[in-house]
Design a protein around this nucleic acid. Sequence first.
DNA 1: GTCTATACTTCGATAGAC
DNA 2: GTCTATCGAAGTATAGAC
Lengths: 198, 198
Amino acid sequence: MTARRIGTETSKTRAALLDAAERLMVDGGYAAVTSRRVAAEAGVKPALVHYYFRTMDDLFLALYRRGAQRGLERQEMVLQSPQPLWALWDFSREPYGTNLTMEFVALANHRKEIRAEITASAERFRSRQVEALSGILAGYDLDSDDWPPVVIAVLMSSVARFLVIEAETLEMSTGHDDTVAVVERLLRRLEGDRAPTA
Amino acid sequence: MTARRIGTETSKTRAALLDAAERLMVDGGYAAVTSRRVAAEAGVKPALVHYYFRTMDDLFLALYRRGAQRGLERQEMVLQSPQPLWALWDFSREPYGTNLTMEFVALANHRKEIRAEITASAERFRSRQVEALSGILAGYDLDSDDWPPVVIAVLMSSVARFLVIEAETLEMSTGHDDTVAVVERLLRRLEGDRAPTA
DNA sequence: GTCTATACTTCGATAGAC
DNA sequence: GTCTATCGAAGTATAGAC
């Protein structure tokens, strides 16, 4: 009963397996991520998946951690941009990240071991947003008693993500343009016109 | 190659199978809904599942239709209540329906045949909300140019559902109380204090 | 590090007896 | 209407050769 061998975290193959898993997850949902399919997608044999990840849950965990890390770094840049509210709004409306995140949330619903990781990460995203928004909104024309930073964070996230899910997953768009217009009217009031993208 | 036999839609056993499937879906996610498990949960043998539902997709579809029908009926009552905004807000925040819906949305992500049904149903929910809100908001102190009924519908749905997902699935609550307070302050302004529940 | 081979489980679905 | 019995496919995971 010697310890199972396990691949190094810096392996190129390991990264390729995570890439393959992410592709499968994005366009097939978490149920499409099986050891056989990940292997096939990466062009290797199934046993190799279990060499790098002891269980499929380990793979999901590693995949989520990698994505969350990247997301946190991008959010940091977003919050430090010249128009942080506009940038955060655009960032939250990106389909790719939202779809992946929602798939992980669905997964968390019945993979208890993964939920803790996702929750902790979601808290990290939020608390950084709140921290940054506190400074940002202080300089804007907004009563922070009526609209605390944490509420702005929750509202922006929820509307952005909801619109993405409806548009991307359900291909539904009733009311989307009108809602975006209302939100962006508020953003304009606080932060001025959106600067033209570089 | 005679046509497969299929059970009647009014069968009690069929309803019991749907009940079992719904229970499994709520606390284990759609991946937990397998013919064998549904049968076990309902106390019958797996072959019976395929007697009432030719494929598992048929079962999912039937389950979704039943829930959507019930939901639409409940929403109708909600929209006709004395404080429709409050009632819609409470309705949208119910965890059970939201969890089930989100699980179906996740399923729709990779079961193309089911997506159309969910999208059509979501459109039906929304359009009834918009129709009702148009009448309701006309009597309230709200500029419908700035806040069209469809926007109110989208905003309420998105915030309500998002809070439920975070609270129920992720067991996360940062900012929730504050956000609920802000929303309910607006509801109070439009519709007065929430009437005590009967 | 990657493979072959394999054990074991669970799944969807069907045929046919009762 | 419900069951037994069964097929073939696909899943996770491991042992051990190369």
